[in-house]
Simulated scan of single mutants.
Amino acid sequence: MKLGSLPRGARFQVTTAGSDPADVQTTIRSMRISAPGDGSWTSYLGQALRTELATSGNYDANAAARIEATLSEVCIADGQAQVTGHFVVRQGPSVRYDKVLHADAHWDSAFLGAIAASNGLNQSTAIFQALLRKLFDDPDFAAAST
């Protein structure tokens, strides 16, 4: 809904930079959780960003404005998750937005391993939505969209 408040002509292409951070931690109990899709958290962030922008009508693969997203932290463990990303909005050669954003979540870690793993899997994607919400709620991002 926040993207709906951007100017009508605000369109972005999306690029992701680099690979997953070297110290990705995604283990709930003894189960390792992989990113949806091709298994790359960086790719998942890019796809989630494209999906949100496309849903709101703000995605255009040929737009002059570009959002570059880079992950620097992914940690999903029993009862907690943290994700940190660096977002840069470029309009041609000029940088209009440049921030590192962080999202974290905490939830009850169930006693049963199967329930804990299921909760962790659900939270592993929800934490990325929280990170994107921080980006879209940032007034500086809205200003960079004009």
Rank of each mutant, 00 (worst) to 15 (best):
T27V: 15
T27E: 15
I28C: 10
I28P: 06
R29F: 07
R29H: 09
S30H: 15
M31F: 13
I33M: 14
A35G: 05
G39S: 04
G39H: 09
S40D: 04
W41G: 01
T42M: 08
T42Y: 06
S43V: 04
G46W: 02
R50D: 00
R50Y: 00
E52Q: 14
A54P: 06
A54K: 14
T55Q: 13
T55G: 12
G57Q: 11
D60L: 03
D60G: 07
A61T: 06
A64I: 10
A64T: 15
R66D: 02
I67T: 01
E68L: 09
E68N: 13
E68H: 05
L71S: 02
S72E: 13
E73A: 13
V74F: 00
I76C: 08
I76F: 05
A77M: 08
D78I: 01
G79T: 07
G79D: 00
T84H: 07
T84M: 03
H86C: 07
F87H: 02
V88D: 00
V89E: 03
R90N: 14
Q91V: 05
P93G: 08
S94C: 03
V95D: 04
V95Q: 08
V95E: 12
Y97R: 09
Y97M: 06
K99S: 08
K99E: 14
V100I: 12
L101S: 05
